[in-house]
Design a protein around this nucleic acid. Structure first.
Length: 1127
RNA sequence: GCCGGGGUGACGGAAUGGUAGACGUAGGGGACUUAAAAUCCCCGGACCUUAUAAGUCGUGUGGGUUCGAGUCCCACCCCCGGCACCA
């Protein structure tokens, strides 16, 4: 009978479908296992053979887990919102709903052909309203929780797709990941998920999950946490101000924060007035203003400051002034009483009206300082205040959420002229010789508004303007020369040295990272070095380099103490031939320059003495010392001790060739070589020697490594690591910053989940209540986007909004980034038909988290990080009890086309799985894809090679004829097969668990080879064989299983177990080596003791050992014998 | 530049510091056949040798540690992926 895959596969597919063979087993007595594939976007093009690779692997795991007694959740669904269907709609008018459903049908057929054991009863589609209802519901919960916010921001605009993109969707070269368009900057009001709130946990919890290390590293890099310090540099300006500070509700001038602010400002020579406002719990507008006005005279040097209620008073004061003041700062201020937390006593009488124009006419600049965490004043209140003054809100961080801490450095920062920098190298603070601000830095913006602060106001304004016009690509081109402009008329004070240092504005400093300002330490930072060279700024070295060897022959021995020594090195050149002298060490695999210790003498005399001793050349001339000292820590192989050498380098030239003979001691440890410049560069491998060589060549550079502090006062002698902590403590604060920014989810596109927000007639956004969800995607739309969302063209949407919420209410017309839909789908699979919840608590507890997640490596940051964020946020809202969605993650490698390129319609090199299934069978495809090579590697498809998998299955088919019943079995042959069988059960089980599918298949082949060679296989042995094959080739194994007369499916049988005793064979072949070279073999019983093995081996190679003396014999049990001969 | 991963026959690949190249593909030889396909058997890293036996070399390059290195250490070259003026 021939192996007819078409007939067999069709038959079983239909039987399994009809019987719902893969419905999820919900027997609570079994342990659960949730194995999930990343749900695909159902593109119109259908699948190519590369797509199912991951599905096949997860299916193998799912099948094996079922056979091992687990209840397995193995679902599949569709990530169905997305641009291709929408772009197709724009071109043809076909509704995306229709296109998408058709594509899903195609995908499902293709996937079904492979008999992947999904529970199709749990199928979901993210575009279906019963799914996106919950995507929207989650949005509203995030909204209530403060994890969703709207802000005007410079965003990435894709001019081809006509929508904004998340930072993650923009490639490093500034083009869009999807469309390839050059991304533009646009200022738009957009919705954001506050993923940065979870930055720390997103980094820290990576350690708890079993993910590929490279994926974890990618996430860590993307979040880009760096731990450093914030340090404030006071500004020295000729101008001094008078600060009038008005406290808030139930406040007092004696409060620690005001006294602290006052003291800090007075230190800088400013004047501070702190009037006490009366009756703040029942304030009268007139009384408050009168007290404030009476406190002092107001003029162009006055800075008026108001906290909370005091801010409202300050605004009224400003309204009434006759001469303009310099500045008005509100801290946690408001102009209405729509408080977040609770009503205030004064609300009844607070009916104050503010004249924005009068205030703006009387004040030259404003700052509205608001902490988003403020418990009383909402961001909307702050926004209304800022609108009155026509300035943006300045976001700050208070120590206590309403700026009520004992000290409030952020308040001081916005009052006192101070520049705060972020640095990871606080240890180099003494070397900071200038500051650089980003062009968008608020202090620069404000100074430019004042016009008189900077002597070169126009020049700076022009530079800032130019920088703003540059695209990100231009600004981030790293090879470009740095530019900047000095801020004339101001200087900063280095808090460590007290020195006055200049300020620059330069576009190499990024406004959105850290504080938007950096300290320039040219001696120890490459960028600062480049900048300082160009603008001739002083370079102060404060770190002596330290070269620490931790591995290799001269790596520090951890158990020995480190001895400090003053040392000297010399580069010696012979001017006659231009060669350099090096020492070739006898017991070290490298060359060095002449090197030695200083013994009660000057460094200069020490090096001359060492040169004579080590080389014999005595007529030498010191040309110049080579820079400052450097440190080397290493294990001194000759002296057998750990050394910390504090080295001075010198450059000498030979005056003649006279060379004395070396002492015996010296000659024994090294020899003198003369090398050309090229040879030196090639052979010199010791880092401190290389550093010396670079100095000799005059190569100037910043030293950015670790080292020992110098010229840093009390911190001298500390390691950079110690100094970072100590200097931070003394002059700044520890601070973490992140590269990660909040997740922009607004998309100006049609085919996505509508953002469930409506705006009241005042324009205030409201989350749509649950009873109105799903908030349906309208269908009466113009698909073509025109810079705003197509939803804007829907009449039905507006009518719906007004009908439900009232006249004048307007719908949000943006849709959500599709990643929002895929950030929680794994939860829905636990309970996919629930109409009351996104999933019941019980279902979630039963199935989650996902035990094994398989998908492409292209999702290492986007989807995988967003999903982690969702889970953490939902946990904090008490919907979940676990921290991480995916406990174990594996990526499948790509299958590229036979020509080595990516499979793509464009190249015409796509292999369609349907064709392979038709011609060779699904089992062949499955076996081949697993056998190709390591699961995570990218490998080229090779149809010829695939035929090998087909041949293997044909051999399996024929081997069924070799099955023998007990009475006809030849014992010897049975035993031979049994030994290989039990080893195979062990290996195949372990290999599947370890994702080594390729070697598992190879073991199936080895076992089959054995069966064929013995020409017989016991019935029970054959049953076990089919069970081992079943996860890989479900159809043929099922068919052969039934041919044995079995009634039930092979896929619901118990996974075979192996007998430990059978893993050990009776005899073992030892390899025999002489001096490590293979010289023979000997077979002995496997329980032979070492001595007997040794003598058997000795006999086997007796001829070769004749006349030789054996110095040593190594016997590795079960492996080999090695005779080491005496020489 | 920085951070990952990798470099093994003609090809895909295998190998807890212990006989390098399992398993498969292509290839060569043979059997069966009128013939071909399919199937079965044998060979299958390079060099040396008529061939065998024996030997020499061999896992990107150069060194090292070890009785023994594809595997560990040092330096370097190349390829792939990610990040990149992130202070």
């Amino acid at each position: 009978m021939k192996y007819d895959h078409r007939k067999i596969e069709k038959k079983w597919r239909e039987k399994w479908d009809a019987s719902h063979a893969y419905a999820t087993n919900i027997d609570a007595a079994r342990p659960k296992y949730y194995v999930l594939d990343m749900f695909p976007y159902p593109s119109g093009a259908g699948l190519h053979v590369g797509h199912p690779k991951g599905y096949i692997a997860s299916d193998i795991i799912a099948r094996k887990k079922r056979m091992e007694g687990f209840r397995v959740l193995h679902p599949m669904g569709w990530d169905a919102f997305g641009l291709p269907a929408e772009n197709y709609a724009i071109k043809t008018g076909t509704p995306p709903q229709k296109t998408t459903d058709e594509s899903i049908a195609t995908f499902k057929t293709q996937i079904s052909n492979l008999s992947l054991s999904y529970d199709w009863d749990r199928e979901i589609g993210s575009h279906r309203s019963d799914y996106y209802k919950w995507t929207q519901w989650l949005f509203t919960k995030f909204f209530d929780r403060g994890l969703v916010y709207k802000k005007k921001a410079l965003v990435n605009w894709d001019p081809i797709d006509q929508t904004v993109l998340a930072n993650e969707q923009v490639l490093p070269d500034g083009t869009a990941e999807r469309s390839g368009a050059v991304v533009e900057k646009k200022e738009l009001e957009q919705w954001f998920y506050k993923i940065t709130d979870y930055a720390d946990e997103l980094v820290d919890k990576l350690e708890t999950i079993d993910w590929p290390e490279s994926t974890k590293i990618n996430q860590r890099n993307w979040i880009g946490r760096s731990e450093g310090a914030e340090i404030d540099f006071g500004l020295d300006m000729p101008k001094k101000y008078k600060f009038v500070i008005l406290h808030g509700f139930e406040g007092k001038p004696e409060m620690p924060r005001w006294q602290w602010v006052k003291a800090k400002l007075e230190e800088l020579g400013h004047e501070v007035i702190l009037p006490e406002l009366p009756n703040t719990n029942d304030p009268s507008e007139k009384e408050q203003v009168a007290v404030a006005l009476a406190a002092t005279t107001y003029n162009a040097n006055t800075v008026l400051v108001g906290h909370s209620l005091g801010a409202a008073v300050a605004l009224k004061v400003a309204e009434k002034l006759r001469t303009p003041i310099a500045r008005l700062v509100t801290i946690g201020g408001f102009i209405d009483t729509a408080f977040k937390d609770k009503p205030r006593k004064f609300e009844k009488r607070f009916t104050w009206e503010f004249n924005g124009k009068a205030i703006r006419d009387n004040v030259r600049s404003f700052t509205v300082l608001q902490d988003p965490r403020d418990y009383a004043v909402s961001d909307e209140q702050a926004a209304r205040l800022a609108e009155l003054l026509d300035v943006p809100v300045t976001l700050g961080n208070s120590n206590e959420p309403h700026f009520t801490g004992e000290t409030e450095p952020d308040v001081l920062l916005w009052l006192r002229p101070t520049i705060r920098v972020f640095t990871t190298r606080a240890d180099t603070l003494f070397g900071a010789t200038y500051l650089v601000l980003a062009p968008e830095h608020p202090w620069v913006t404000r100074a430019l508004e004042h016009k008189t602060v900077l002597k070169n106001n126009d020049e700076v304004a022009a530079y800032v303007q130019k920088a703003k016009q540059k695209s990100d690509i231009e600004r981030l081109a790293t090879d470009k020369e740095k530019t900047g402009v000095r801020l004339e008329g101001v200087s900063a004070v280095n808090p460590a040295t007290g020195e006055k240092i200049p300020l620059y504005v330069a576009d190499y400093v990024l406004a959105h990272y850290g504080t938007g300002a950096v300290m320039g330490v040219p001696a120890h930072d490459d960028r600062d070095y480049e900048f300082a060279k160009k603008y001739e700024l002083p370079i102060h070295e404060v770190v002596e380099p330290l070269f620490k060897r931790t591995s290799g022959v001269d790596g520090l021995k951890p158990n020995l103490p480190i001895e400090r020594r003053e040392a000297v090195d010399a580069i010696i050149r012979n001017p006659k031939d231009g060669r350099y002298l090096v020492l070739q060490w006898k017991n070290l695999p490298w060359v060095t320059f002449v090197t030695g210790g200083v013994e009660n003498e000057s460094a200069e005399s020490a090096i001359e003495r060492e040169i004579i001793e080590e080389t014999g050349y005595k007529n030498i001339r010191l040309v110049r010392p080579l820079g400052g000292a450097l440190n080397a820590q290493f294990y001194h192989v000759n002296k057998k001790s750990n050394r910390w050498a504090h080295v001075r380098g010198f450059y000498f030239e030979l005056t003649d060739d006279v060379q004395e003979p070396l002492s015996e001691d010296e000659a024994a440890i090294h020899e003198v070589l003369w090398l050309t410049k090229e040879e030196v560069e090639k052979q010199l491998t010791v880092p401190d020697m290389q550093a010396l060589w670079r100095r000799y060549l005059g190569r100037e550079e910043a030293y950015t490594g670790e080292g020992i502090l110098v010229a840093s006062g009390e911190f001298d002698g500390m390691t950079t690591e110690e100094a970072r902590a100590a200097i931070t403590q003394r002059f700044g604060r520890r601070k973490k910053t992140y590269r990660l920014r909040d997740w922009l989810i607004s998309r100006q596109r049609y085919w996505g989940a509508p953002i469930p927000i409506v705006y009241d007639p005042e324009g205030k956004p409201h989350a749509i209540p649950e009873e109105h969800l799903p908030w349906l995607l309208p269908t009466d739309v113009e698909y073509l986007p025109k810079g705003t969302s197509p939803l804007g063209s829907s009449k039905e949407l507006v009518e719906r909004t007004e009908r439900i919420f009232g006249k004048g209410w307007r719908p949000e017309i943006d849709t959500m980034d599709t990643f929002a839909c895929s950030s929680w789908y794994f939860l829905r699979f636990a309970d996919p038909h629930n109409e009351k919840e996104f999933a019941s608590k019980q279902a979630i507890e039963e199935w989650l988290p996902v035990d094994l997640y398989i998908g492409g490596a292209e999702h290492t940051v986007l989807h995988l990080m967003y999903a982690r964020f969702f889970v953490k946020a939902l946990r904090d809202m008490s919907y979940l009890k676990f921290d991480e969605p995916f406990l174990k993650l594996r990526h499948q490698g790509l299958i590229v086309a036979e020509d080595g390129r990516k499979m793509s319609k464009r190249y015409g090199n796509v292999i369609n799985p349907d064709d392979i299934v038709e011609t060779y069978g699904a089992d062949t495809l499955r076996v081949y894809e697993m056998f190709m090579g390591p699961f995570q590697d990218s490998i080229a498809w090779n149809t010829q090679s695939m035929i090998g998998a087909r041949r293997f299955l044909e051999r399996v088919w024929r081997a069924a004829e070799l099955v023998k019943e007990a009475n006809e079995i030849d014992d010897e042959k049975y035993k031979t097969v049994d030994a290989v069988l039990h080893r195979s059960i062990k290996k195949i089980g372990e290999d599947i668990d370890a994702f080594k599918f390729n070697t598992a298949v190879s073991q199936l082949m080895i076992l089959l080879n054995t069966i064929e060679k013995e020409k017989q296989v016991g019935r029970a042995q054959w049953e076990a064989y089919l069970q081992l094959l079943a996860p890989f080739a479900p159809h043929i194994s099922e068919e052969l299983w039934h041919l044995l007369g079995q009634g039930d499916s092979i896929h619901s049988t118990d996974w075979p177990t192996y007998d430990e005793k059978l893993l050990v064979s009776e005899t073992v072949v030892y390899a025999i080596q002489i001096d490590g070279k293979l010289r023979g073999q000997v077979e002995v019983a496997s329980d032979t003791d070492k001595a007997a093995v040794e003598s058997a081996a000795k006999d086997a190679v007796a001829e070769r050992l004749a006349g030789e003396e054996i110095a040593r014999t190594v016997v590795v049990p079960g492996k080999l014998v090695n005779f080491v001969l005496k020489r």
